[in-house]
């Protein structure tokens, strides 16, 4: 079954990665995205999207994937 939460989280993660500043190193940028997710997303959401990443992370941007690998 399609997960509404997951669909929405994929676009949110991509949006966060697109919006956080890109004038710094990729490492720092990924950390900023990861920290945002860590601070604002619920435990269940983080678990669900990490599982999605582990399964290939379809739909996630490269930045979002790198950040999710850090949380």
């Amino acid at each position: 079954m399609e997960s509404h939460q997951l669909t929405s989280m994929i676009s949110m993660a991509n949006q966060i990665a697109a919006n956080l500043p890109h004038d710094q190193s990729q490492d720092e940028c990924d950390k900023a995205v990861a920290s945002h997710l860590q601070r604002f997303w619920s435990r269940g959401m983080k678990e669900q999207i990490r599982a999605h990443l582990a399964a290939g992370g379809e739909g996630l941007s490269e930045g979002a994937k790198r950040a999710l690998a850090l949380i």
Binding site: H4, S8, S42, G44
Partner: peptide, 20 residues
């Protein structure tokens, strides 16, 4: 208290539709 953030309103709606 739980140390992790909870669901926001739109997250609640999505979780509701997912059955959780």
């Amino acid at each position: 208290l739980d140390e992790e953030p909870g669901l926001r309103i739109p997250n609640m709606f999505n979780a509701a539709l997912d059955g959780t």
